[in-house]
Amino acid sequence: MGTQASAQGSLRPLNISIGRVPLSLLIPGPHLREKALSRYREFTADSEGGLPVVLRSDAQSARRPECKDPNFSYVLDDASMLLDSFGAEFHGVRQEYALDSLLRILLTMVLLPQRGFLLHAATVVRDGRAYVFTGRSGAGKSTVASLSPAGTVLTDEISLLKFTDGRWQAYGTPFWGEFRAAGQNEHYPIAGIYTLVQSAEDRVESLTTKEVIRALLPCVLFFTSKVEANEDLLRLLLGFVGQVPCERLHFRRDDAFWKVIAA
């Protein structure tokens, strides 16, 4: 990224860390930088040396010459990203929502070799352990979050799950849904993961490994069509399912479900 770093002049990077992934954001323009600083305030990091992420307002065609063969590229509406072994470039980012979306996409690629992934899930902390509730849109993630005491919701939308310190842990993220919270830069060992089904009763249902994979796959954020990466994802999920209790939670729209999962 040497060429890019010098091209950005004396820009001071905004250093953040999400799920122990240090990122060094080089954001031109004070307006977007202020927006980013506000959005990721809970995730700012003191240390430098994170993966360089250079934001450019131009289109993707202005990619740097040495990045002819990026490891990964993605186009999202008017914005796009390139990732290679030196860092990432975000093009066409003009507001914080595009930055947020590209950061999610970037993280899915960076986390994979670190045994981590992003999941459409709400995570609630109870007695020092993380309970992860996943499901497609409308399954009840926000409902579960809204039924939980203030301060216990690690995220209501995107959970970052990663194998660190010898166990699977859930990390707070700045990626929120309806709650629009700043997020908590904390992590907790995962007690279990629950696929949500709204029901007339509260009960948990055991799942086979295949059923869990079938439930998780549509909820994993993943954006590459590379076969090797998809193989790695399957391998990672199988390892996850082998080490974390995974069940289907039938629940009513009240907090009584805790009685059947955290008894």
């Binding site: 490994t209 295949k210 076969v227 998809n230 994802l233 399957l234």
Partner: peptide, 17 residues
């Protein structure tokens, strides 16, 4: 070769990326 797959409990799960 464009498909990713793993065998789970003796049955193949295949992803078309």
């Amino acid at each position: 070769p464009k498909l990713a797959w793993r065998e789970i409990d003796g049955e193949a799960v295949i992803i078309s990326p």
